[in-house]
Amino acid sequence: MELLYFAWLREKVGIASESVPLPDGIADVGGLLTWMADRGPGYAEAMKDLSVVRVAVNQEFAHSTDPVKDGDEVAFFPPVTGG
C-alpha cells in the first residue's frame, strides 16, 4: 500500500510518502493507526494525539472501522485548514 503524510504529520514522520506491504493482521484504519505508532519515534510522535489525525483511504475521508487492503492509498494528515 502507498502511505502519504501531509503538513505537520509529514514533518514528524520525516517523509512525504512510502510504499509498504499491508502489515500482518491489519484490516482497518484503526489497526493501521495502532501499527503506525509502533514504527519508530517519528511515527509515535505523529500519532500521539489521534484527535488531531485524519485519515483518507483512496482519497475519501475514512473512519477507524473502515477497511484497508493492499494496494490502497492511505493518507494521514491534520484537520484541514483551507479556504
Binding site: A75, F77, T81, G83
Partner: peptide, 8 residues
C-alpha cells in the same frame, strides 16, 4: 470547503 477540502 473550509472543513472538507484537504488544504493546510
Amino acid at each position: 470547503l473550509k472543513t472538507k477540502a484537504p488544504f493546510w
